[in-house]
Design a protein around this nucleic acid. Structure first.
Lengths: 221, 221, 221, 221
DNA sequence: AATGAATGAGTTTTCATTCAT
DNA sequence: TATGAATGAAAACTCATTCAT
């Protein structure tokens, strides 16, 4: 479906010995699992399919990860780590407040566009009440550094007369994330209901412009 | 989990007189299915559980609805019908433009608060690419009357100097829906990540105020 | 598949009231059952399908026939009655012995060609050890009048120097029936194995000639 | 029912040491399946029963064979392989033409007597239009070597003045097979109709003599 | 006579997981 | 580390039959 669909399929030429590369095995499993869980949700994902897609024996799932739940959590952790790494690479501190916020909005939108699995995985995990995330030892500590940055930027922007006062940084951060997220997560039903494909590149460009516009206008003093 | 959790369980007092009340059977199944699908997603939902919860024989699922997919679609249609009915009861036309939009935002938020199943069901259906919605004969025709109303209201508001011009009604409608939706759909993971429960009544009140605020401020000329 | 395939399907124009024509209902059920049992065997046949095909309510199967087994037996009896009636219409007595036998062989072959369901039904009933036929009150009494006729004809033929002596009438009767029967009953696997379609009109014509030829030559003094 | 009925039941003495003998598992399943399919037809056969009879876990049917259809095909292939092997062991070439044909007829009859499952399986497969056989990759290539042998023998016999000319080898081969086959396949209904058991050893001996007689007499010049 | 709802036992198949090697 | 066989519990769906009207 998406461009990354078969990214984890084993190259047919190389017969995937791997018998002595546990690192590679773990990684192949993780990629395959991410794809399968995103595609089918936790309940719909098949351990067999993950192993097959990774080109390894099914038992290795249990050997390396324990069980299906643990593998799912590993996938969630990996995907959160990925977005945190991307956020860290943003370097918004040097920018003027309005430029910084605008860039954050654009980043939120573009990251989800690049990693559609993220949306699918998070949707399912939320339907499950974040059961896995809550059980994670790592994730709670991995809160985004951006909330703090938003707080600082808002303060600076208000001081510079660029933003209206009284905005809650966490609420704003959530709104920025949410407007982007919803654009992707609910595109299928919205497209069906509106009778027009909202996931085309053109429609997404328009949507992105609107999201940036909506937030930026809201911040005006 | 939620307050409606066992709303569909058969009241033990009334001994399901039926056996000859297909209407009641269909309805009991639909309610039970809505609950089960919301709770567990399409793949995770169990037909056995639905029948048990409805207090009827499992075969009646197939007798009345055909199969699991068709039942799922019936649930989606019923839940869409419900929100459309609620929207129709809003009567926004008589209000001044800013009051109308504000009320729409509040309605969007409050409806999701009242029917948490709606969010859960829609999330799963979207992960499935809206496969069921698209197959529906009824749903595509059930687009919201509110988009048109938003368009009219925006125009009137711009004319009255209340709103800035250039806003796309559909985009705005989606943003209003999305900001509310995300507040509920992703509360579990957000709570886990932020280390604070965002689904309490207090947190929700605060969030609602922020959402209304964000949109209304963005519309200013 | 065959030309009689949808002979029992209800004409769509007439909405099959029939609410007051039990005779017609019984008959429609019998025809539908014959088709379904022939197509799918006893175990594979579906009572639902039979009722649907007959255009009547499923309960009427039980009302009129008792149960699936009894309906199956009714079908067997009807089909045996049919072949006996056809045999009675043969009037072989007046013919010279060799003409009579030849006509009997041709009749055996042609009857199966006209009623392919007969072969399918009998094959399945035999795999079941003739459980239904044996339970029948009518069938054992419906033995073919032709065995007696074969006996007489053989005797006459031997007397006239047309046939060799020592032939057992019942054995000959079975062989005549069997050579024809096998040509139809096993055509599918034979065709697959020989890699050529033995059920075409041409192949059947050739086969018929061979069968007549084989028996007639064998009877020579 | 027949003497081989419980031939495939696990000997209680040997505790199915297996768990690690896939070859034995596959074989036990195949034997059990042959029995069950012969007894009950494809539609009537129960996968549960096959697994139980083989003394293995039901899932192993799917693990080793894929599904019920594939298992059925495997049974058909095994039974065809068996008859082909027996045919190959006949060594008819060295015999004088009339002896060769006589021996072929006797073999056809005796093989079916020894393997009653063959008849039952083939009857059902034919009612299904040879659906499985046609899908087989192996079977179409497994045509009998005997047709060629019959052709040669006929030619030699005609040359030696033993047989009449003009006989089609394939037709003759089919008739030989058919006369034997019908004797077994339709014995139940014939017995019921004629009111006398045609499947006793005595009756079968008489029938065998008749079949040989009928064919051999037919070949006379 | 006729209907459609309802039932309970079953049927194929699936699946996460463990065992033996 | 890796493999494929093996397991038991359960899943969706089916089916002959009966009930209430």
């Amino acid at each position: 479906m998406t461009s990354v669909d078969n990214a984890t399929i084993e190259p047919p030429g190389e017969p995937r010995r791997g018998r002595r590369d546990p690192e590679a095995t773990r990684d192949a499993l993780l990629r395959a699992a991410r794809h399968e869980f995103a595609q089918n949700g936790f309940a719909g994902a098949r351990v067999d399919e993950i192993a097959a897609r990774a080109g390894v024996n099914k038992q290795l799932v249990y050997h390396h990860y324990g069980d299906k739940d643990a593998l799912y959590l590993a996938v969630l952790e990996s995907i959160y780590a990925e977005i945190r790494a991307a956020e860290s690479a943003l370097h918004l501190r040097g920018l003027p407040p309005d430029r910084a916020i605008r860039r954050l909005i654009e980043f939120s939108f573009d990251h989800l566009a690049r990693f559609p699995d993220f949306v699918a995985l998070l949707s399912d995990e939320n339907r499950l009440g974040a059961a896995h995330v809550r059980r994670s030892a790592k994730l709670p500590a991995m809160h985004s550094p951006l909330v703090g940055m938003v707080a600082e930027t808002l303060e600076a922007g208000v001081g510079a007369g660029l933003f209206r006062p009284g905005l809650d940084p966490m609420q704003l951060y959530i709104s920025i994330a949410g407007l982007s997220y919803f654009s992707f997560s609910n595109a299928p039903t919205l497209s069906a209901i509106f009778g027009r494909d909202l996931s085309t590149a053109t429609a997404m460009r328009r949507r992105r412009r609107h999201v940036v516009d909506l937030i930026m206008n809201s911040l005006r003093p």
